[in-house]
Design a protein around this nucleic acid. Structure first.
Length: 532
DNA sequence: GGCAGTTCTATATAGACAGCATGTC
DNA sequence: CTATATAGAACTGCC
């Protein structure tokens, strides 16, 4: 249904005008844009022109300070967000710290935040409706095509966020911005009256197909080639793929790789002999122990094989922390990688040469297209390297253009891949590597140098507190035992000091009473510890 | 000389799920 | 079918 709205033309930006109109009507709006920086810029543009209700001012100030202090040290991003929030406006994208994201979402639901400028994150999964949805950008950059129209399905996702029945909205409004008549026509044809594109089967992606094949064999759901084929013939993918023979070729190729990689055995039953067809029917499939573990870990077999070959190569290399970081960075799971900017190209290339004797993955030649991706992996590894050397979030943002939210995602991935590597190393008997991998894993988790590892084993001690202790010559468990309680208290607070003393076996009974008396929120883990 | 405001130019471009076993500042 | 918003540099004009 279309209708005509009259909106005051106060400024040159349509989005801004529509948002101000929305506020005048005491409603909320979501603005969808196509990049993170756009989301931030749009939010700032709007927040600069918003006049907030006096009644909300205090609440918004409080919220702004919460947003600002979500991290140890506020980054530039935190400051920008906090400033917007003071006006009841926010931006929302995957680079936000999860805590900030939650704050924004909750306070939009409650009605305190009026406008959110967001990338498509918000349209998926999360149920965050608004009276008005403004789809600012209908085009988005994607290589290699450059700027292209977003899928109709996505457009519908955006518009589906319009209307808040819980706020007594009887309807919602979804708006697009067209600069010209021809553009307007295009939008109508494409999105309003256009047909949604076909839903692609997820199996179409080869890594997923590979993972499925192995999993079917590993769970013994399919123990012959025939039963495997039969399964896939019934899938949506086959239905959509149309050509069953081609699908069969792909699966055959996958089976061949899985065998080469040592994840399955293909048992040809020659007894039936002469008739070719019958023979194929009897081809048995069986997962090796290694293959079973790969499947359990939910790894793409290709990645599993890559990790194994890297680790086998470790003996011939000068092993460094960086070796493992680069190994992780070069997996398909880690993509998209950090982009190497024009200005950085030489520097990254230089680093690549510097580390070449420690690199576990195969270095592509400079003339292969793959080389670009290799350099990106190098930059991503350098990012991880900074992280485990205690570089703070602000610097990571400036140096690598990686925001806190993105850091978390990358670290989660790295952790999962390292755990998997550890498990694989056990199976292929590379026991020498396990310790090194475990160490790197711990360092990635905390973002700390190796010297802090003994301290990080304590509960309630992260990299900040550990560094503080270390600077005061408290470097390991023994030092904690010897340390004076008052010094510890001075460094990390009474609660934590008592907690770690208790963890080294010193039960300070008298203090225990005090602990209970000085009970504060957020210290539940310590209380629990005391009661054990 | 220093600044605020403007125009010009170079540059980069959305997101998020898998294992496992619990507790960061 | 290959665009555009943004950030930051460069520039201008004013005091």
């Amino acid at each position: 249904m279309q209708k005509t709205l009259k909106i005051k033309h106060l400024y040159e930006h349509s989005v801004l005008n529509i948002c101000l109109d929305t506020l005048e009507r005491k409603k909320q709006a979501l603005v969808f844009v196509n990049s993170k920086s756009s989301a931030e810029a749009e939010a700032e543009r709007i927040s600069a022109k918003v006049k907030i209700d006096g009644s909300d001012r205090d609440k918004l100030e409080l919220l702004a300070s919460n947003v600002l202090n979500a991290l140890d040290k506020p980054t530039k991003q935190c400051q920008r967000l906090a400033l917007c929030v003071r006006s009841g406006v926010a931006f929302h994208h995957a680079g936000l710290h999860s805590q900030q994201r939650e704050l924004i979402e909750d306070n939009f639901r409650s009605g305190l935040i009026k406008i959110i400028c967001a990338t498509p994150t918000l349209a998926y999964g999360l149920n965050l409706p608004a009276f008005r949805v403004i789809v600012r950008d209908l085009k988005r950059f994607s290589s290699p095509r450059g700027m292209s129209w977003i899928p109709v399905l996505e457009f519908q996702q955006f518009c589906g966020r319009a209307g808040r029945p819980d706020f007594n909205d009887e309807y919602g409004e979804a708006l697009c911005i067209a600069e010209t008549d021809s553009e307007k026509e295009k939008i109508f044809d494409n999105y309003i009256n256009g047909e949604t594109e076909d839903i692609l089967s997820k199996l179409a992606v080869e890594p997923v197909l590979r993972t499925y094949v192995l999993s079917l064999v590993a769970t013994e759901y399919a123990n012959t080639k025939k039963s495997l084929m039969d399964f896939f013939k019934k899938t949506f993918y086959a239905h959509q793929f149309g050509d069953v023979r081609q699908l069969e070729e792909i699966i055959k190729r996958i089976l061949k790789s899985l065998k080469e990689w040592g994840f399955i055995e293909i048992i040809d039953n020659k007894n039936e002999g002469k008739e070719g067809r019958k023979e194929e029917k009897e081809t048995g499939l069986e997962a090796t122990i290694l293959g079973q573990r790969v499947s359990q870990l939910y790894l793409d077999p290709y990645t599993a094989h890559y990790l194994i070959t890297c680790m086998r190569r470790a003996e011939t290399k000068i092993l460094k922390d960086f070796s493992f970081l680069q190994m992780l960075s070069y997996t398909i799971e880690m993509r998209p990688l950090l982009t190497v900017k024009v200005k950085e190209y030489d520097l990254i290339e230089q680093k690549a040469n510097e580390f070449s004797s420690s690199i576990l993955s195969l270095e592509p030649s400079m003339f292969e297209p793959e080389y670009e991706e290799y350099l990106k992996s190098m930059k991503t590894a350098l990012f991880f390297y900074d992280w485990i050397n205690e570089v703070d979030e602000e610097t990571l943002l400036e140096k690598f253009n990686v925001r806190p939210g993105e850091t978390r995602v990358k670290l989660d991935l790295a952790d999962w891949l390292l755990y998997s590597s550890e498990e694989l190393a056990k199976l292929i008997k590379l026991h020498g590597l396990i310790k090194e991998i475990a160490k790197i894993r711990m360092r990635l988790k905390y973002g700390a140098k190796e010297e802090l590892l003994p301290l990080l084993r304590f509960k309630n001690i992260g990299r900040i507190r550990a560094r503080k202790l270390y600077q005061n010559k408290i470097k390991d468990i023994e030092d904690v035992k010897k340390a004076d309680l008052s010094l510890l208290t001075q460094l990390i607070g009474k609660m934590v000091a008592l907690s770690i003393k208790k963890q080294v076996g010193e039960d300070l009974r008298e203090e225990k009473v005090q602990v209970k008396e000085t009970k504060r929120k957020g210290q539940t883990s310590i209380m629990k510890y005391d009661e054990e």
